[in-house]
Amino acid sequence: MSFLRSPRAVPYLLLMPAIVVILAVIAVPLAVSLWSSFTPYQLTRPVTLFTFVGLRNYSRLLENTDFWWAFGRTILFITVTLNLELVLGLGLALLVNQITMGQRALRTIMMFPMMFSPILVGFQFKYILNDAVGLLNNALFDLGLITQPIPWLVEGTLANLSIMAAEIWMSTSVFAILLLSGLLALPKEPIEAAKVDGCNAVQTFRHITLPFLMPFIFIAMTIRSLDVARAYDMVRIMTNGGPAGRTELLWTLMARVGYQNSQMGMANAMGYVSILLSLVFTLYFYRKLVAARRYMGGVE
């Protein structure tokens, strides 16, 4: 009791609300989920939460081909979408940066895809790509480009590409906005110096603009790698991991195992393995970011 009244307790008392919130929202759930990954916890049989089985979930996981397919597919998904979003976003940013009139309006319009809920984007693409009534197939039909409907969301490879397309459609603007802010902050003089030094437009971009943009690129990459790595909603709506698990990503797989099969212990074990993946991507980009920023330390 005397400690609570002493001056040394003041900081802790003042921080108490924050500490309570963090404990309730982050620390305790994290601890419980970690614990549950060492149990055969099933949602339908709560008592199983108290059966300790050591690393059994993890060792089963290592032999689970479905999981590793989803794991690999997720890496591929992240790599392809991030890179395409970067290239498209950069192009978009460069184009918008050239515009002198109506740039503000365009910048606002560029944010539109970000304003949609991913669920809605998923539905929208699902209907566009539907093989029977979808807009795309109908358009291709009417143009005489196809005679048979293309099963966009049913054939494995096409389904994966379709999901990627939806993801890219929704998030390219994130890159574009972030990179545009970089372009707007770009100092004019080194670019002029490069022009005088003999650079043409491409060389100026390659040697001056791009290095300047690197920190912005890595910030965008870091943010988006976290985002993409938890892609769930769009996949859930568009294909629900199907056909036959061909578009299953880590999070849809985990949700299926945890909630549909109610094997929460196993799902949590999967979660902890997948976090490694997120960490690797994020750490990689973060390091690049720090390096790029050190580089640019001299910008005045």
């Binding site: 100092p187 003089e189 080194p190 002029e192 110096a193 490069a194 022009k195 005088v196 030094d197 003999g198 650079c199 043409n200 040697h207 001056i208 290095p211 300047f212 580089y295 640019m296 330390g297 001299g298 910008v299 005045e300």
Partner: peptide, 28 residues
């Protein structure tokens, strides 16, 4: 364009390339 005029210019804010060493700046 500037590159075909065989001029060189020193700017008020130096306009050095911040990601290049002095050697690279000079030789760019």
């Amino acid at each position: 364009p500037p590159r075909e005029r065989n001029i060189s210019m020193v700017f008020q804010n130096y306009a050095l390339y911040p990601h290049m060493t002095v050697r690279e700046n000079l030789g760019f």
